[in-house]
């Protein structure tokens, strides 16, 4: 345990609530169907891999249209929005993101018939440096 990457102090104003509202139009997302795969402890806060997938048949009648990724500890909550269609076959995407500090990552999925589902996960951004 010694000195690794620096910890950036938490920013006061994070707009996660406004961004959530803008995405859902005020509807309250239900926990479930969304799976967020992120490391529990980030190896590098500048590039944290994130996979989001949503349980959906992805048919013309029943599919996930959009998934927004938000971070509650960055200067801005917005991370990315993915747009799917039945042509996607599977509602799943993976990218790499910046996390300023330990925080929660939230994913909200919107279905074609206007339902919202959500999942979140805490990612620790650590100084690091010990070992057994």
């Amino acid at each position: 345990a010694t000195l690794g990457q620096s910890i950036t102090p938490a920013f006061a104003a994070n707009n996660i609530d406004e961004m959530t509202k803008a995405f859902t139009g005020g509807a309250k997302p239900v926990a479930g169907k969304v799976k967020l795969d992120l490391p529990e402890i980030a190896e590098n806060g500048n590039t944290v891999p994130i996979t989001v997938s949503v349980d959906s048949p992805m048919t013309d009648k029943d599919y996930v249209s959009d998934v927004i990724i938000l971070a509650d500890g960055n200067p801005n909550a917005g991370v990315a929005t993915f747009h799917f269609s039945p042509a996607s076959g599977v509602a799943e995407a993976n990218t790499r993101i910046r996390l300023a500090n330990t925080q929660n990552i939230v994913a909200i999925a919107k279905t074609n018939d206007g339902k919202f589902y959500t999942a979140s996960k805490e990612v620790k951004v650590t100084i690091g440096g010990c070992g057994g």
């Binding site: 345990a1 000195l3 529990e40 805490e122 620790k124 650590t126 100084i127 010990c130 070992g131 057994g132």
Partner: peptide, 24 residues
């Protein structure tokens, strides 16, 4: 901050957030 950070790597109540070393 460093001591807190290392302590959390050891005593976080969820083992998936622990690194498995001892305190600095």
């Amino acid at each position: 901050d460093i001591l807190e950070d290392v302590a959390d790597n050891l005593f976080h109540p969820d083992p998936y957030y622990q690194q498995g070393g001892d305190m600095v």
